[in-house]
């Protein structure tokens, strides 16, 4: 029965948001559907229930979402805009080591890097991300990590590990 509760919560929230109303009928059918979805796919989504239901991780996720959307995105957008206007760029693919272990943390780091303008993850394997970077200042993997993905990894560790 691993993962049923947390997947059911995810499905229930999706159901209610998509339906757009919270009458008794919606809540009742939503509950049935959520439990059904949880039993069907829960064991593939969640590895440890205690981790998925820990509220501290959820709070970190919200903090990360706000910081990512409000600060990091704006900063990189401004940077890329400057590069578009001045025409100064030095693009190339660098290898960035990745230290987080779980699938979700890796996905979060890779998606965060891709979503910020100027960096795109081209491929990834167990230890390295291959990032197409608009301004290659260094090719040393550790230095690249400090420049590109350190902050994301810090949060990913707090949320998913």
């Amino acid at each position: 029965m691993r993962g049923v509760i947390s997947t059911a919560i995810l499905a229930f929230i999706t159901y209610i948001i998509f339906t757009g109303s919270a009458k008794p009928y919606d809540l009742f059918t939503g509950l049935i559907v959520a439990v059904g979805v949880g039993i069907l796919v829960g064991k593939f989504l969640v590895r440890e229930d205690s981790k998925a239901l820990n509220p501290l991780r959820w709070i970190w996720a919200v903090i990360y979402f706000l910081k990512y959307m409000l600060i990091i995105e704006v900063k990189t957008h401004l940077d890329v805009m400057k590069r578009v206007i001045t025409g100064k760029y030095n693009a190339g693919i660098v290898r960035v080591p990745i230290n987080v272990k779980t699938d979700y943390a890796k996905t979060l780091v890779a998606n965060s890097i891709t979503n910020t303008p100027g960096t795109v993850v081209v491929d990834l394997d167990d230890k390295y991300l291959y990032v197409n970077w608009i301004d290659v200042t260094t090719e040393d993997p550790e230095a690249c990590r400090r420049e590109i993905s350190e902050e994301f990894e810090k949060f990913a560790e707090k949320i998913f590990e």
Partner: peptide, 23 residues
């Protein structure tokens, strides 16, 4: 396919099941 797509697919499938049931 790569790890990113697989992980996202897992979550998306759970959401599609909920949405289609709602429809």
């Amino acid at each position: 396919l790569t790890l990113v797509i697989k992980t996202v697919t897992k979550v998306i499938v759970a959401m599609i099941l909920a949405v289609s049931a709602s429809i």
